[in-house]
Design a protein around this nucleic acid. Structure first.
Lengths: 302, 302
DNA sequence: CCAATAGTGTCTCTCAGACAATATAGT
DNA sequence: ACTATATTGTCTGAGAGACACTATTGG
């Protein structure tokens, strides 16, 4: 039985409409209207060592969540930081050949173009997360409020990208510079001056990432091919912005079926200042975590 | 402290780019490319009595989840069922006045236009759910694969709408007919012949709705202003497609802070064939459910 | 009174979190 | 030895699900 019962009495309330009524608005030509530009913006997250004088030894250790930002070289918002992004390309060549980019493709291209970060290409459907090399990409949401771009009407499809420690970016495209910038727990409290509505997009992306760590094995996308339980915990701590209990986390992760697989190997050395060698794991096959790893102390409802 | 440490050493890896490198691709004119049309599609769900010969007395009682579909009157896919939707309007009038529609606005307009269902207007941000009268609207996702519309490149922003038992729709716009069609658990298994990629959009919307019932008070959007715990349970049963334990559900709902509020009143009569009168509740103020109402027996992982 | 529906009590099992204890490695 | 890190054990309380029981109401 299909989703739609299109036969017999199960479809009720269907009412044919007289042709007269049908004629108005029946044909709509989008070219009679102003064009709407379609862009993609990318919220790319990675975990890397906290650097610089600030918080180098914060309560959460050396690891911090970083987001990829570019400094805009063009108007509007020239000189401001923004998320990497740009127009989706679709054009017909002189010989009539169509050249059309899928949305995730455009996201990957912008990422590569504006930062010099390499990535394979994408072919999956818009809402299905997929891997590009070691990069996990998924759609975040679409932002199309009139006026969000002073130049014209722009509808922007935002993507989330998660990757293990990536190299420093190389600016390109119309970005004057690109950098991994640490994301703080204060992200939503005291927003920086990002271009357009990118402060909100970043906040939405951060919340999405935090939520997905709870019920998907997404955290393994931030870790290397093989990782220790402690490294996995550091991913959670960096994204959630709070320390977790090492013992309970360890037991919990191993108790979730399909989350991680034991490789049998261990790290070559113990900790720098002493300590046991840690077992190495790889990502398991589970698509969802059962039971989920819920964020601690969520006493903040409404 | 802001999300971006834009001062001093905390932003590392920033590298200025020589002007020569910067010039290429620096300015991008979207009008040099083929236009991309932007549309909205709406997945509107409601709970209503199952009708017709099929499944009138199924294992889940009389109530079933229904989705609003329209029968297309125009090419392409003329005569096929599809989700209500259409182009986002943006144009400059002769006197230079800009007339631009926000995305949620366009969704509401399409809903009203193609079905005759009334609704207030929308002003919130793209990704923030908001109410329009008794209708709850939220963004589902964006579908822009090249070729999904044979006429031209179309990027469609899909919205989810939830409403309590709505009246039968009246076709309008370029829809030849409109109807509430029952959504079966088989939705994803044996998809019907919906136009475009609407079968997938519907499946995505269904899964989103099922998931949101777990951790948000969304179910109250399907119920009337005042409702009994049994009615609320019937919403969950209809959306999840499986029966729930009445006693445990009752206790659970009342134990979640802010989910429902007692009105003090009860139903005027007991059940048709006897039974106690039920207390009447209204929606509470909680935005999230703690603890969540998890779907039963989710033994279906990967 | 009998059947049907609303609402409550009880028991068991799982799981999160606090805390403690053991195992192993570096210095 | 002494310290640091990994890993495992124990206990307690919250909550889900099974099941039984009480409270009302219509016929």
């Amino acid at each position: 039985m299909g989703v739609v019962e299109s036969r017999g009495p199960s479809v009720r309330a269907e009412r044919e409409v007289p042709a007269a009524e049908r004629s108005q608005l029946a044909s709509y030509d989008p070219r009679a209207y102003d064009p709407i530009a379609v862009t993609v913006d990318v919220v790319a997250f990675t975990i890397r060592d906290r650097s610089g004088a600030l918080g180098a030894d914060g309560p959460l250790g050396r690891h911090a969540l970083h987001v990829l930002l570019v400094r805009r070289g063009e108007m509007p918002y020239a000189g401001r930081w923004s998320l990497p992004g740009g127009f989706v390309r679709a054009h017909t060549a002189a010989d009539g050949t169509r050249h059309e980019e899928d949305l995730p493709q455009a996201a990957v291209r912008e990422l590569a173009e504006e930062t010099g970060l390499a990535a394979s290409d994408a072919t999956a459907t818009a809402t299905v997360p997929h891997d590009l090399g070691r990069v996990h990409l998924e759609q975040l949401g679409t932002y199309g409020t009139p006026g969000r771009d002073p130049r014209m009407r722009v509808v922007s499809v935002a993507y989330l990208a998660f990757a293990p420690d990536l190299p420093d970016p190389t600016a390109g495209g119309d970005a004057r510079a690109a950098a991994w910038v640490p994301v703080d727990a204060a992200a939503v409290i005291d927003p920086p001056e990002l271009a357009f509505d990118h402060t909100r997009i970043l906040a939405d992306g951060l919340e999405r990432a935090r939520a997905k760590l709870e019920y998907t094995p997404l955290a393994t996308a931030f870790a290397g091919e093989r990782f220790t339980i402690t490294e996995l915990r550091e991913v959670y701590e960096a994204v959630w912005g709070r320390p977790l209990h090492p013992g309970n986390f360890h037991r919990k992760v191993l108790s979730v079926p399909g989350f991680v697989e034991d490789t049998g190997a261990t790290t070559a050395h113990g900790g720098a200042r002493g300590g046991r060698r840690a077992r190495l794991y790889r990502a398991g096959t589970a698509g969802l975590l059962h039971p989920a790893l819920l964020r601690p102390t969520r006493e903040r409802d409404a």
